[in-house]
Nucleic acid binder design. Structure first.
Length: 827
RNA sequence: GCGGGGAUGCCGGAGUGGUCAAACGGGACGGACUCAAGAUCCGUUAGCUUAGUGCUUACCAAGGUUCGAAUCCUUGUUCCCGCACCA
């Protein structure tokens, strides 16, 4: 392939874009367009091809919208807190900041080399105190509103991370970072954010997220999992134990209660007599990992306590069970063995009473002894006091009402979503701005004292958070009484940073406020948010929560952070496996860029497949894109050197040009980049038939969003000053799109196919072909140009109208002529 | 178990009721250019048949809806992914 020094061209234009600051965003009156890619964790390994793909998707859109006249905000930042940097620092006996900032530098360099049109002046990094100060500020605000709180709870603990994790960070019972590390459940006192206060709005709002992929919406719905039901009070002694059920109709069938083995107040239920057995059981349960728990038989042990049935006043035993999820509802359930499969199995095993209260219409009596499974459907009630004869659906209403009258229950909505555990026993994160004072208890750091900065001089010991042993950090005056207290040594989950960083982009240098509301309200919500779908139930829920909270304290005027969410597909290696050093199939962006040039690489990445689908890297594919880029460059060269003369475009070409502008734009606007590239290639073929400078420049403008460096270079070559990146996006003229003309062309193509077919057949018979005679309908004669046909067929072509009197037609082929299909005679 | 997304020609991948033997790219093959190679350009790329036609087989499989299906419905096969004892 022709050798071109792409990196010279790339550097030239990258430098100019930067020195002229042409991608800087300023607030204004124009219509805004805000595009963000999920900011990356700056890994020491640098950019991989998936990053390049991700950012190219955003960059193409940003460039398009900019040229379309929008005021575009397209920023970049780094989610720089987190474990990898801390672990690297521990290993090297250094400070994570060193590693992080080196990695960031590297990222910036590599991203600039991709020609991404970020407004670098708005760069933000999470570990900057000027940024995390506002994490702490939000924490303060949440604390004031009762949304940040500390509680003892069963929490997920990863030994490898040496810290607790959020519910969302536990994957199949394993840590989200360490797939080989079983998450243990521990009972610890931790900081939480009360995201459940927003559970309903987060859930109901999903339906309004029109621009979000259905997949993400479904995942979020399942995650939050709203269910309507009844909360019922059971008395054990004089204490109320709440239970949530969606099947209040089965209340009379309750024969025991089951409490989770992880319930924090569990021991209050255990009688002295049963203590030994319970302890034994608990030891057994806790030795089994979460994942294996699912496969276990339902097992349990009697606690020794009895509860009072709220309506029948009967005494029912309270059991401890290994199958009760501690964090759903209240961690205790009412067991209805006749109508719930799990309860049924449990009751069978321990010989507990099974009481039928719901029977399907016309169904037979339920026999607890012979039955193989519970009846879990709806039906008609029996054995249910005054509720007998009601249908299940009605009974749910009536029984709930009855409970409400007695103040022993109420309508309730249950969510699977739990409060967000944000404490981390790690160093490299935002310190939680709390001071423990012996006299005053838990005290918030004052706003004026923010940020609580991470110390620079730290020593990592083999275990745990180095902040704990850092006296200077830990000793702090109590803001209330002035006595020396102890700082909170836990830091915040890194997902806290990403929950609002996109707002800081709107006003990144503000020293007085988290951001100026006017600016945020101008830029937000994000028009296009681009990132992977793995964040469906993590970041993409958290940032909705933060947005709603900041709205509620008066900073924002909108409910959702993102209008349109785009999840890019996964990029795999050429062999279809994921790119990995151990497979030896990694292709790095800087290496590929050397080989193909950045522009061809960009073009390949976005054109192999629809960008939302998974695809494989392919050297052949990249070469194909490079071929196209080279063709464009050659063409412009030849045009400039007058090797190709400027030529007025035909009406047909004009029609195709305008159609291309229209369709290409439509494709790009909805991220149909792969389809857009097809149109761009087709347009180039049209221009190659001969075109004028104006049309060629239109092409370059369209081309520039995908291949910006080459486009700038060619733009300049044609004698233009200024940047093609700042040109106006071409507009199409509907009147110039001529369907009829293009239809005629199709007919001619078909005609040529026919002629070739006949030539093939004739030649196959050993005859020679010298000349083609066409017989066209008189009104169509103007559509056919014998010179052009000769050009394509390479043999002489003579055209008659069917009614030409003196025509040469030895075989009467003129009779075969139909509209759009001339008769053909070859000899 | 529940939920989501796939299965298209040699390959990657468009296409969601007729204009589809199915875009575009890659590969392969034939031709042009050339001393030659590369690059570039043109053409072919389901089969049979035919002076431009017609037929058959085709979009995982089997049924169905329809005048008409790659496209809609049912069932099945299979692959990927998410959640998972949620009361």
């Amino acid at each position: 392939m022709k050798q071109i020094n792409f990196s010279r061209i790339e550097r030239k234009w990258q430098k100019q874009w930067e020195s002229r600051g042409i991608f800087k965003a300023r607030e204004g009156r124009r219509r805004k367009y805000y595009i963000v890619e999920m900011y990356p964790y700056p890994s020491g390994f640098g950019l991989h091809m998936g990053h390049a793909f991700n950012y190219t998707i955003g960059d193409v859109q940003a460039r398009l919208r900019r040229m379309q006249g929008f005021n575009v905000l397209y920023p970049m930042g780094y989610d720089s807190f987190g474990l990898p940097a801390e672990n690297a620092a521990i290993k090297a006996k250094s400070h994570p900041k060193r590693f992080t900032e080196q990695a960031i530098k590297n990222y910036i360099k590599q991203q600039k080399e991709l020609g991404l049109s970020y407004d670098w002046s708005r760069l933000i990094v999470s570990h900057d105190p000027e940024f995390y100060k506002w994490d702490q500020w939000i924490f303060l605000k949440m604390f004031e509103k009762g949304l940040a709180y500390k509680k003892k709870a069963p929490v997920n603990f990863c030994k490898k991370c040496n810290t607790v994790l959020a519910n969302e960070q536990v994957v199949n019972g394993k840590c989200w970072i360490h797939e080989d590390s079983d998450v243990e459940v521990k009972l610890l006192e931790q900081w939480f954010l009360r995201i459940t206060d927003y559970a309903d709005e987060l859930y109901e709002g999903i339906d309004k997220l029109d621009g979000w992929p259905d997949l993400i919406k479904t995942l979020q719905k399942n995650w939050i999992n709203k269910s309507h039901g009844t909360e019922i009070d059971f008395f054990v002694g004089d204490k109320i134990w709440k239970v949530f059920t969606t099947r209040a109709d089965t209340l009379f069938g309750v024969t025991f209660l089951v409490v989770s083995a992880q319930h924090p107040d569990l021991m209050a239920l255990v009688s002295d007599k049963q203590k030994k057995e319970v302890d034994k059981f608990l030891r057994k349960v806790r030795s089994v990992s979460d994942k294996d728990l699912v496969k276990l038989d339902k097992e349990g042990v009697f606690t020794g306590s009895y509860a009072l049935h709220p309506l029948t006043e009967k005494r029912i035993p309270v059991w401890l069970g290994n199958f009760i999820v501690a964090d759903y509802g209240s961690g205790m359930v009412m067991a209805v063995p006749a109508h719930d499969q799990r309860d049924f199995e449990f009751a069978k095993k321990y010989g507990l009473e099974i009481r039928e209260v719901v029977r399907p219409k016309g169904g037979k009596k339920f026999n607890p002894k012979s039955a193989k499974e519970a009846y879990t459907g709806f039906g008609i009630l029996g054995n249910s006091g005054g509720f007998g004869g009601l249908k299940s659906q009605e009974a749910i209403q009536h029984i709930t009402n009855a409970l409400e009258m007695k103040h022993k229950g109420r309508k309730a909505v249950g969510y699977r979503l739990k409060d967000w555990l944000i404490s981390r026993q790690r160093f490299w994160g935002t310190p939680i701005p709390i001071i423990y004072c012996n006299a005053c208890g838990i005290v918030l750091v004052l706003e004026k004292d923010l940020p609580v900065k991470l110390p620079e001089n730290i020593k990592f010991s083999s275990k745990g958070n180095p902040l704990v042993g850092h006296d200077k950090f830990m000793r702090a005056k109590c803001p209330k009484c002035g006595k020396i207290g102890r700082r909170e040594s836990d830091t915040m989950d890194t997902f806290v940073n990403s929950s609002w960083y996109f707002l800081r982009y709107c006003d990144p240098k503000n020293k007085k406020k988290i951001f100026d509301s006017k600016k945020a309200n101008y830029w937000m919500p994000i028009d296009n948010y681009i990132g992977g779908k793995e964040h469906a139930c993590l970041h993409l829920i958290y940032f909705r929560f933060y947005t709603k909270f900041l709205r509620d304290i008066g900073l924002l005027r909108f409910d959702e952070p993102v209008k349109r969410l785009f999840n890019q597909g996964m990029l795999h290696a050429a062999d279809g496996r994921k790119m990995s050093k151990s497979y030896g199939n990694v292709v790095l962006p800087d290496e590929a860029a050397k080989k193909y040039g950045v522009d061809a690489m960009r073009m390949f990445l976005i054109s192999v497949a629809s960008p939302d689908k998974d695809f494989n890297w392919s050297d052949k594919g990249a070469e194909g894109s490079l071929r196209f880029v080279l063709k464009v460059m050659n063409f412009v060269d030849d045009f400039k050197n007058k090797k190709i003369k400027s030529k007025k475009m035909t009406k047909l070409q004009e029609s195709k040009l305008h159609r291309a502008i229209r369709d290409y734009t439509d494709d790009l606007e909805v991220f149909g980049y792969n389809l857009g590239v097809i149109k761009l290639r087709a347009l180039f073929d049209v221009l190659r038939e001969g075109c004028d400078k104006r049309s060629l420049e239109i092409f370059l403008r369209l081309f520039s969003v995908i291949c910006p460096h080459v486009a700038e270079e060619m733009w300049e070559k044609l004698g233009n000053r200024g940047f093609v990146s700042l040109e106006k996006w071409p507009k199409f003229d509907k009147k110039k799109i001529d369907d009829k003309l293009e239809e005629i062309e199709n007919q001619i193509n078909k005609l040529i196919d026919d002629i070739r077919n006949i030539i093939k057949i004739v030649k196959g018979r050993g005859k020679k072909v010298g000349r083609v005679y066409l017989y066209v309908l008189p009104q169509e004669k103007k559509n056919y140009d014998s010179e052009k046909l000769v050009g394509r067929l390479g043999i002489e072509v003579i055209i008659f109208a069917v009614n030409d009197k003196g025509k040469y037609d030895p075989e009467g082929k003129a009779k075969k002529a139909k509209p759009g299909r001339p008769g053909i005679f070859l000899e």
